[in-house]
Every structure is written in structure tokens, then in C-alpha cells.
């Protein structure tokens, strides 16, 4: 279970550069997720709970 198994041969320098690369792809995915999340949450909160009328007690 060694770390590098069958990857393209990267030099130490190239590897180090990648290790320092910021996770832009992750950020993009999470940003999209956050937008969908908020839309869906507001949708259910106001579109279902509030739309069904008052609730308390």
C-alpha cells in the first residue's frame, strides 16, 4: 500500500509545485453546492413551511 503506485513520473520539483497548488476545483464544486443548498433551503422554508400557514404553540 505504498503512496505512489502507477502515476506519471513527476520530478520532485513538479510534485512540490502541485502540493502547493490551491484547490480551485474543490472550491468551484463547493461554491456551486452552497448556492444550490441555499436555494433549496429557502425554497423549502418559505415554499413549504411558511406557505402552509402559521405554526406555533
Amino acid at each position: 500500500m505504498a503512496e505512489q503506485s502507477s502515476q506519471p513520473q513527476l520530478s520532485e520539483e513538479e510534485q512540490q509545485k502541485i502540493l502547493e497548488t490551491p484547490p480551485k476545483g474543490t472550491f468551484a464544486i463547493m461554491l456551486i453546492y452552497a448556492v444550490i443548498f441555499m436555494a433549496a433551503w429557502f425554497g423549502i422554508y418559505f415554499g413549504t413551511l411558511i406557505a402552509r400557514g402559521p405554526v406555533s404553540g
Partner: peptide, 16 residues
């Protein structure tokens, strides 16, 4: 979620 995905992104980039 972010950290794990970022680690995977790192791995993917190391794989080319």
C-alpha cells in the same frame, strides 16, 4: 467535505 475533496484534488493532480 472541503478538506477531503481538496486532498483528492491534490491526488488527482499528482496523477496528471
Amino acid at each position: 467535505g472541503f478538506s477531503v475533496m481538496a486532498s483528492m484534488e491534490l491526488s488527482g493532480r499528482l496523477h496528471g
